[in-house]
């Protein structure tokens, strides 16, 4: 079992519904967000290429945030989902420094907060909130270890990339290009 996400950058229109869905589902405090949308413009006029993609914690296989955590508050649960236990977190921000995706932030209550892949929804067989509301169906969630899952089939038929592979974290969110 290895949960992962496949996001189609050719379908994403950058509506930020995923951001709002996450904030609502997870009671993210006002002014903070666990996911966001990046628009990358590549090239010089008139040869321009626009890539829109929704980003969040990559739930990496090789997790620098878990490695540098001094108390063990950052940990990996079944399916490779990276989570933080608020009562063990001292708010030292070492995990924030160790994340090449800047996916973590300090919750106003003091502990470090981040995307959980909506593990409370996944446990009931539902998709994460961001995936379930996407109006263009550009996001897909599933088991990367299962060759018959939707995400595995997309990865085997389409070209994909991950963000900052050179950081060596083996991210598990794939972008179709």
């Amino acid at each position: 079992m290895r949960y992962g996400m496949v996001i189609d950058t050719l379908k994403c229109v950058g509506c930020t519904d995923c951001v709002v869905a996450c904030q609502t589902e997870n009671n993210v405090p006002l002014g903070y967000a666990r996911d966001w949308v990046s628009e990358a413009v590549i090239g010089t006029y008139p040869e321009l290429h626009l890539e829109i993609r929704t980003e969040r914690c990559n739930h990496c296989d090789d997790t620098p945030c878990v490695r540098t955590c001094p108390t063990g508050a950052s940990h990996v649960i079944e399916g490779g989902i990276v989570k933080v236990t608020p009562n063990e977190c001292i708010g030292c921000a070492a995990c924030i420094e160790s994340c090449p995706y800047d996916a973590r932030f300090v919750h106003p209550e003091g502990y470090v907060d981040k995307c959980t892949f909506c593990d409370h929804r996944v446990a009931n067989g539902q998709d994460p909130a961001c995936v379930s509301v996407c109006p263009t169906y550009c996001m897909h969630f599933g088991d990367l270890d299962d060759p018959n899952s939707e995400v595995s089939k997309l990865l085997s038929t389409r070209q994909s990339k991950v963000l900052a592979p050179e950081a060596g974290t083996k991210p598990q969110i794939f972008y179709l290009i």
Binding site: S38, E39, V41, G43, V106
Partner: peptide, 22 residues
């Protein structure tokens, strides 16, 4: 040349530049 605009992040407490350690 590559220019990245982060939108959907009109979110005051998420800074594009990290300055958590001062």
């Amino acid at each position: 040349m590559e220019e990245i605009i982060t939108s959907g992040r009109n979110i005051p407490h998420i800074d594009p530049i990290l300055d958590i350690w001062g």
